[in-house]
Design a protein around this nucleic acid. Structure first.
Lengths: 356, 356
DNA sequence: TTAAATTGTGTGTGCGCACACGCAAGAAAA
DNA sequence: TTTTCTTGCGTGTGCGCACACACAATTTAA
């Protein structure tokens, strides 16, 4: 049990005071070149690792993380990352990490902009948000650059020097994975109905990437056996229209063997076609929303790909703690696992979503 | 930003000294009933949460966790939890958490016993081990009870009052999951060849549970369509015998449509039957060993169920940190997710195994 | 009845570090 | 030359808590 090396040890060994060592460590200047060199040398020799516990205690400053997220309960998917962040905050609050939450209307770029400004006004030490609206997000990042606020993006990535880290899904690959799963249930050939149940522009990039991934996978398997039919539905909250649409498509294209819902709204499809009595139509969707899980257990949904939305939020806060408290470098991109969830292993993921 | 409540605040409010508050908090006695009551009341009223950072700093005592694991590199599976523990230790070492590692021969109960005694002699503050040998493990737990060392089990659970927590897989459910996956690739009917590539007794319980899970799932689907053929192979390190065995079985039972390798040794099967030229035989195995992943990418293995062996070790250490440092209650049982890993989503899990 | 043990309380020190301040010596400006 | 700045160091305090110790007031034992 060799005791840990402290700055006091360094000071003694180097023949200086702890104050000087401190100045070297924090590069505060006011140290002669020779002394600085000597101290660094001793630190190296003794393999000094600062005691982060003592450090944070002495630092004694609150770190406020600004969080800009869609209004809670406006969409079940978007609740997940926010709840993950709150859980993470609970577990790191003793480091003095706090959250400023600012919500915006999921479908209003103007509100996003307004909320962003309100948040920046609070002078947070860091910022976390999903760049749902590209133009407004770039403006926000510019603003962050000016006031030097490091930023973590969740859900969607965007290229900008101010972005310290992106935490989220790999949409293309999740399309590939969907292709793999769907092809195993299609018995050799058939058509995949790809349903985008989303408003234009909100997630355009992700949806396109998923489609690409799916198509590439199926093409590489055998383009003559597998085909894809895409259908965009902005009016996804209208069950009657959805049912009619699907009924029509299934009549028109008898080789539709399976449905790929490209976001977390598979449950809306299932709800809409409850009445449609016909042979089981395998459905693949995304994310462990309560409604999705319900239909998964009932056998109405066959696969869910879990994008770990809750964990995205959790990680964002954890990473910022690593950055501020433990002085760690963060990776520019962190893709989360694409969990394949079926009825038989859903319980574990659900538990994790809630507990972390 | 309402400042956090400190024991000093409590002391002032209660009209006593901080020493007294301290005695109340730690229940050290030497406080009159009325004063104690008053202090507790004030703590409640001010919603006092101790500053764990300051607490661990002042506590200033190393906590040593005894780790009893199979010899490193004796079996690729068993490396994973140990490496997970080491990673976890790195990330919590500033709390003064250290590991005493003691290795034992995976196939020798005597050596297990000897190593256990050696470890206990070091007087660790807690103990982590997989109860591979039931009898010897119960003895060890008795010993732990005497010297009052709390214990966390990994990989396998055992009922004993001294067991604070079990972290591991749910074998039965993983058999169910295997059944689900295999039935989707069997196209409606067929025989599953269940291969236990293990020495008697080492993991008997797990293997039986998995078989049960598989059988129950298939029976509930349709017992007339799906059958299971079990084959135990202790001599799994002999590729020739393995190849001959499989060849024979495939000739004898032409309806074998898929193979379920019940532990991490699927790669041994694949290596053995490389030569066997025949139609693709879907294989399901366990765990993200390098060899397994290699064959997964090549398409020789179709599914791996990830039991998160590395994460088991990681969690064990993390949980003990929560227990000792953050005074958290631990759940008696923590089942880890059963990740379904295919070539298309393997990368993420691999990354996590290495990084956590 | 006196000595010894116990109970109830306050004070003080240290954990390792961050940071403000003080102070001397030399450099630059007046 | 005197004054003001700058550079290069050391000292001191505090972060919030754990724990040892001191000491008076009892209570118990001898």
């Amino acid at each position: 049990m060799n005791k840990r090396v402290t700055i006091k040890d360094i000071a003694e060994q180097a023949g200086v005071s702890v104050g000087t060592v401190d100045r070297v460590i924090h590069d505060r200047g006011r140290v002669s070149a020779e002394v600085k060199e000597k101290v660094l040398q001793v630190m190296q020799a003794l393999d000094f690792e600062p005691n982060l516990i003592a450090s944070t205690l002495a630092f004694n400053r609150a770190i406020q993380i600004g969080v800009l997220m869609p209004q809670l309960h406006s969409d079940p998917y978007w609740d997940l990352p926010l709840l993950g962040m709150r859980r993470a905050q609970q577990s790191v609050k003793h480091y003095g990490i706090g959250l400023f939450e600012q919500m915006f209307d999921l479908f209003s770029p103007q509100d996003f902009k307004k909320s962003a400004l309100a948040l920046i006004d609070q002078k947070p030490d860091a910022l976390v948000f999903p760049p749902i609206f590209l133009k407004e997000s770039m403006e926000l990042l510019e603003h962050c650059a000016e006031v030097e606020v490091p930023t973590i993006l969740v859900n969607t990535d965007v290229e900008h020097p101010q972005v310290m880290s992106y935490i989220g899904q790999d949409s293309y690959q999740s399309g590939v994975l969907a292709g793999k799963l769907l092809s195993t249930v299609m018995n050799g050939s058939g058509k995949v109905l790809l349903l985008n149940l989303d408003k234009e522009s909100t997630n355009a990039k992700h949806l396109m990437d998923k489609e690409q991934g799916l198509r590439h996978f199926l093409a590489q398997k055998d383009p003559s056996l597998f085909t894809v039919l895409r259908q965009d539905v902005e009016d996804f909250d209208n069950p009657e229209r959805l049912e009619a649409l699907l009924k029509g498509l299934l009549q028109q294209y008898v080789d539709i063997k399976t449905v790929f819902v490209t976001n977390s709204r598979a449950y809306k499809l299932v709800e809409a076609i409850q009445g449609l009595s016909q042979a089981h139509l395998p459905i693949l969707g995304y994310d462990l929303l309560p409604n999705n899980l319900h239909f998964l257990q009932m056998g109405k949904i066959d696969f869910l790909i879990n994008q770990n939305a809750s964990y995205q939020g959790y990680l964002a806060i954890k990473n910022l703690t690593d950055f501020f408290i433990f002085k760690k470098q963060l990776p520019r991109v962190q893709h989360l696992p694409l969990d394949i969830v079926v009825a038989e292993n859903a319980a574990y993921y659900l538990q994790r979503e809630q507990g972390n």
